[in-house]
Design a protein around this nucleic acid. Structure first.
Lengths: 185, 185
DNA sequence: ACCTTAAAGTGAATATATTTGCTTTAACGC
DNA sequence: GCGTTAAAGCAAATATATTCACTTTAAGGT
């Protein structure tokens, strides 16, 4: 009878490995990230990495997925405008850091995964957003669809980040205004 | 005096190498793409690859940049609505092929280019778009800014592709309608 | 057409990544 | 605590990537 032992040391090794992998990927780009390098930086044995993840790609993907799901709470300020504004500003600020943009790149690159896996990965985030919108709806506010939030808010923010265009609060606010205008018409 | 010789064989080797690199990256993802594999698929000597590009990352990046610069002409149908609709539909259709989406992922992931290089690379495309808009403007049509075309058309299309959401003509058309609505108000 | 030599090819040497078999550590159940 | 054994570590073996010294091919100038 095989009882798993994910606690203690195992958890520490995983945390160290992910942190090292993230640091290397964000700094030197996706190539140049190798198991031995990760192991060295993390201070663990390469063998452990190979046994648990098999190859760099799998390790990076798990890391990226876990990090994406480190679900930092969406705002709940009591009003849709305030919620979306704060959220958009936060994303804009985050994407101004090179490391964040590079992390997004890592995520994309590793996301040559199956549609099912991708859906599962993104599902929690989408649910959060839908909860935010549902709150607004029950308050009786005119509320956009989640799809529209993706089109009007997330897409332009990430697109600009990837193209290397600057992002600021003013731009974030503009996007929110546009989004809300579409539904009040 | 060292005279370059980029013609003939050299050009063929480059084309073969780029094609093989693209195929491998699009199929197995960015990792698992190695110089020996590229060389094998391309039918050329690994040594040649190492000499010219040094490492896989550089080769992939050059490939991606070159492909990005293969600037096919934007539509010129005599009307803004027709031009934008055709363009958006074309992008949507292209991004429905898995290979295309994966190539876009590769492009984003490998493109750790400097802001200057990025600007230079994107400049021709932006000029094309601005020419399209300028034509509409001289015809006296209500014309959006290039930035808005990026936010309302390109960003949602590419974002959805990257998230694995389906793209069709109806959606492309919807985006065009939205974009044009913003300026006629 | 011919010469010069840039750039590709070859095979062997070296370096690095990955696997394997075994030992040690410490997580979990009692 | 204590025993069992999952999971980490270590060292040596193997496989793969990268470099090196050299040869061959053919692009570009005449």
């Amino acid at each position: 009878m095989s009882t798993r032992r994910p606690g203690g040391r195992t958890a520490i090794v995983k945390a160290k490995a992910f942190e090292a992998a993230r640091a290397l990927a964000v700094e030197h780009g996706l190539h140049n990230v190798t198991m031995p390098e990760i192991a060295k930086l993390a201070g663990i044995a390469p063998t452990s990495l190979y046994r648990r993840w098999g190859d760099v790609g799998s390790l990076l993907m798990e890391m990226a997925v876990e990090r994406l799901n480190e679900t930092f709470p969406l705002p709940d300020e009591g009003g849709l405008l305030a919620d979306l504004t704060q959220w958009a500003r936060r994303i804009a600020a985050g994407l101004n850091a090179d490391a964040e943009v590079n992390f997004f790149r890592v995520l994309l690159a590793t996301t040559t995964m199956s549609p099912e896996t991708r859906k599962l990965t993104l599902a929690p985030r989408l649910e959060q957003l839908q909860a935010l919108l549902a709150r607004a709806d029950t308050r009786g506010e005119a509320t956009p669809e989640a799809e529209d939030v993706i089109d009007y808010l997330l897409a332009p923010l990430y697109m600009r980040a990837v193209l290397g265009m600057p992002l600021d609060e003013g731009y974030a606010d503009k996007l929110v205004r546009r989004l809300l205008k579409t539904i009040t018409i």
